[in-house]
């Protein structure tokens, strides 16, 4: 069963030299309960695609549907609670980490108040250290803020998580632990669509890989098939290049 279905999506923004295409005729389905990883060179349209899925942006052409209903039929607030987006740059509201974690609840009085047990669970799922909950959120490191913002999104019990480079500021062990948490969420039928430049992480945790370049979806396949490609084409060379970069960084 598909969570999202996108048909012939196009999106462009005004540029200095006429319209600049961000997405060009993208047609793709995201199956429910899987971890989908969007990979590819920077500027390929990955974040632009994520932003369409909870209506932070709208396509110029094409249709997007969630759970079988066109996105236009969803009340935006309801959709954004169901489809949570966590941007790469975490935004922290004034207050402690706990205040931030519970921030979204003020917009949804129908959600049962979060008790201590639920707080602990959210911290565990997002790999956020519970002993930092009383600390001013602005004093946290970027990596801690990223995980706090993920916990804040999980607090609303979304069905879909859209994550823009969730592990970009994390060390390898923490990123791997986060990957295992996300796999755990998938087993609870949460659909995860994320952007990552860390192919090692993607190989370890993703079910599906989507390769995007120049605003086009070039390939969608199971993770195993993606990483078993040779170096004879553009995508194979991209994978080899990323591995080499990782080797040099290490």
């Amino acid at each position: 069963m598909n969570a999202f279905e996108l048909q012939h999506i196009c999106r462009a923004i005004p540029g200095d030299e006429g319209p600049q295409s961000l997405l060009n005729d993208v047609t793709v389905c995201f199956e429910k309960g899987l971890l989908h990883a969007l990979v590819g060179p920077s500027g390929g349209g990955k974040t632009s695609l994520l932003r369409l899925l909870n209506r932070l942006d709208a396509p110029d052409a094409g249709t997007v549907s969630y759970a079988g209903r066109d996105l236009g039929c969803w009340e935006p607030r309801r959709l954004r609670r169901t489809v949570a987006f966590v941007p790469q740059q975490p935004h922290i509201f004034p207050g402690t980490a706990r205040d931030n974690l519970l921030f979204g609840l003020r917009f949804h009085p129908d959600i049962v108040p979060t008790d201590q047990q639920r707080l602990s669970e959210l911290c565990a799922l997002s790999q956020f250290p519970p002993d930092l909950l009383s600390k001013p959120a602005e004093k946290l490191s970027i990596g801690q803020q990223q995980r706090l913002v993920l916990a804040r999104a999980l607090c609303l019990e979304p069905e879909v998580l859209l994550l823009d480079e969730p592990g970009s500021a994390l060390d390898r062990p923490t990123a791997e632990a986060l990957g295992r948490s996300l796999r755990h969420l998938c087993r609870r039928s949460v659909t995860i669509i994320l952007v990552s430049h860390d192919l090692e992480w993607v190989r370890n945790h993703a079910d599906q890989v989507l390769f995007m370049e120049a605003g086009e979806l070039k390939l969608q396949c199971p993770a195993a098939a993606f990483f078993n490609r040779g170096v004879e084409d553009r995508i194979g060379r991209f994978i080899a290049g990323q591995k080499e970069a990782l080797h040099h960084d290490g």
Partner: peptide, 16 residues
């Protein structure tokens, strides 16, 4: 913009 979109993403109305 980031603050506003962060709130929208949590289900806030534009007014909120």
């Amino acid at each position: 913009g980031a603050e506003i979109e962060a709130a929208l993403c949590l289900g806030a109305s534009p007014r909120q």
